[in-house]
Design a protein around this nucleic acid. Structure first.
Lengths: 158, 158
DNA sequence: CTAAGTGCAAATAATTTGCAACATG
DNA sequence: CATGTTGCAAATTATTTGCACTTAG
C-alpha cells in the first residue's frame, strides 16, 4: 500500500474509513496519480478544474487533508513557496534552489547518516520528506562571477 | 563580522551601505541582539512595540529585509509556521517537531556529510540554516503507545 | 535641505471555516 | 434518507505595497 496508488486503491481506502468517493475526490486522485512530481494545492485545483470547473479550492484542501490522514498523500514545505503534496510512495527528500526557486527530489538515503546522528545525539526522529533543504542548484552556482554586473537576483533570495 | 553583533556593529554596517540608523532599526537590532533564538517577524514586532508601540509590522519586515541584504540577519522556514530570523553568527540547522511544533537548533556539522553528497551527486550547494528538518522530538516520540486512547494530535500534523 | 525611512491603510496570497444545499451508500 | 460532502462567501494569517509625512545626516 505504499507503492503506486490507483484511483481504485484510493477509493477503497476512503470507503474503508467510512468516507464517500465523490467526483471531487476522484478528480483529485486522478490528478495526483497522473503526476509524478509535487504539486501545490493551487496547481491541483487548476488541473482538477480543467475537467470540473465548479470544484472549489476549499474542497481541494479538505480532500487533501483527508487523503493525508488516510496515508494516501504527504505534504512538504518547500521554503518560501506554498505547501506541496504528492502520493505516498518512494520516499524522497527535497532540495530547493534559493536563486531560481526550482525544487528537485533527491533519494532519501542521503538523509540516512544525519538521521542516525540526530537520533543518537538529540533523540530527534527525522522525517525525510517533510521539509526541503535550501541551497543553490548546479546551474545557479558559479553564475556570480566576481566583477560581473552583479545582476542583483532581486527576488528576496527566497 | 560574523561573530556577535552589537548595536554599533549593525549601525556601522547600515551607514556604510548608505542607509540611516533610525529608532526602528535600533529597536529591532536590540531585540535581535538580546535574543539568542530564532524569532518570527511577529514576535520581533511585539517585542519592539513593548518599547515603541508606534513601530508598525511593515517597518519590521522592511528593516529585516535590509538587514538581510547587509548580511546582518538570515531567515529560515520552519515548516508550517512563519518565517523566522536571527543574527548571522554561529551557523546552525533547524529541526522542528511535527507533533508539538517546537523547533530547536542543531550544530551545522550534522549537515556536512549530506552537503558533500549533494554537491558530488547533484551539484547542489546546500545552505544549512535556511530550511528546517521535520520529525518528532525526543519527548513526543514514544508517546503513541499502541492501544492508548489515541489522543489524536488533532493539529494538522504540522 | 533631501533622500531614506516610516506609519497606516489597503492589497495579496495561502488557507480555513460557517452554512445551507447536495449527493453517496 | 441520514450524513458525509461540497460550493461559496467571508474570515484568518503572514506579508507586501502605495503614499503622504517625518527625520537622519
Amino acid at each position: 500500500m505504499d507503492g503506486t496508488w490507483s484511483r481504485d486503491d484510493i477509493a477503497a481506502s476512503v470507503r474503508r474509513a467510512g468516507g464517500r468517493m465523490t467526483a471531487a475526490k476522484r478528480g483529485i486522485a486522478d490528478v495526483l496519480a497522473a503526476t509524478g512530481t509535487d504539486l501545490s494545492a493551487d496547481e491541483i485545483t487548476q488541473r482538477v478544474q480543467a475537467a470540473r470547473p465548479e470544484i472549489s479550492p476549499s474542497t481541494v484542501y479538505r480532500v487533501l487533508d483527508e487523503f493525508e490522514e488516510l496515508g494516501i498523500v504527504v505534504h512538504a514545505h518547500l521554503g518560501h513557496g506554498a505547501t506541496v503534496y504528492h502520493l505516498t510512495g518512494v520516499p524522497h527528500g527535497h532540495v530547493v534552489c534559493t536563486a531560481c526557486a526550482t525544487s528537485s527530489e533527491v533519494p532519501a538515503e542521503l538523509f540516512d547518516r544525519m538521521e542516525g546522528e540526530l537520533l543518537e545525539r538529540f533523540g530527534f526522529a527525522l522525517d525525510r520528506h517533510h521539509v526541503a533543504i535550501a541551497g543553490l542548484c548546479a546551474s545557479c552556482r558559479g553564475v556570480r562571477e566576481p566583477g560581473a554586473p552583479a545582476d542583483r537576483a532581486r527576488q528576496r533570495a527566497h
